[in-house]
Amino acid sequence: MQDITIYHNPNCGTSRNTLALIRHVNGEPNIIYYLETPPSEAKLRELLEQMAMMPRQLLRTNVPPFAERGLDNPDLSDDDIIQHMLAEPILINRPLVVSDKGVKLCRPSEVVLDLLDKPLTEPFVKEDGEVIPPNQP
């Protein structure tokens, strides 16, 4: 079985759907509840590098700490943004999924299929009723 890790927030529908999709196709992943156990600065930088993503691209903008911390300021450096994410992990967008195929921000949840070794062989139904059809050969 493929080793997969998900940085998960159980209060997020996309994160729940991504976790369920991983379980549906691959089995049980390693789950990191990142609000309780946030990544270290080194790990966050590593994940950003592996995704070829700038910190601002991973920043959640629809949570109170975004406005409270003035994160809409375009002059903030990448280091500043990372420090804010470390101080308030809710500012890290999710779910992040790590596999031997890479690291991705899985929004929408079906993006995770690119990281799995096995194809989706039967339909998967998201919480909202949307159906993800099986992978086509």
Rank of each mutant, 00 (worst) to 15 (best):
H84G: 05
D75G: 12
P134Q: 09
L115E: 07
L105H: 14
D100A: 12
V111A: 01
V111R: 15
V103E: 04
K126M: 12
K126Q: 13
D117A: 12
G70Q: 08
P89F: 02
E110K: 07
E88D: 14
G129K: 14
S99M: 07
K118D: 05
A87H: 00
L116Q: 00
H84I: 01
D72M: 12
F124T: 01
D75R: 14
L115Q: 08
L115A: 00
P133Y: 05
I90R: 14
E130D: 05
P95D: 13
D114F: 10
P95F: 03
L71V: 10
L113V: 02
L105M: 12
Q83E: 15
K101M: 10
S109G: 11
D128S: 06
A87P: 03
L76D: 04
I82H: 10
R107S: 11
P108A: 02
G102E: 10
N93F: 02
T121N: 12
S109Q: 08
D80L: 05
D72T: 03
L96K: 11
T121R: 06
K104M: 14
L96P: 10
E88V: 06
S109V: 01
L105P: 08
I90F: 09
D75Y: 04
M85I: 09
S109E: 03
D72P: 10
H84D: 14
H84S: 13
R107M: 06
F124W: 06
R107T: 12
L113G: 02
I92N: 06
V98T: 05
L71S: 03
D80Y: 06
L96G: 04
E130P: 03
L96S: 06
V103F: 03
D117I: 04
Q83V: 04
D78W: 02
D72H: 12
I132T: 05
L115V: 10
I92E: 06
L105G: 01
L115C: 01
F124R: 00
L86G: 01
N73V: 09
P134S: 04
L71Y: 06
P89K: 02
L120N: 00
N93Q: 11
D79G: 03
P123K: 07
G129L: 11
I90D: 10
L105I: 15
E127T: 15
V103W: 00
V98G: 09
T121H: 00
P95I: 11
K101N: 13
E110V: 09
S99W: 03
E130F: 15
S77M: 04
L120D: 03
D100Y: 09
P133V: 04
E110W: 00
L96A: 09
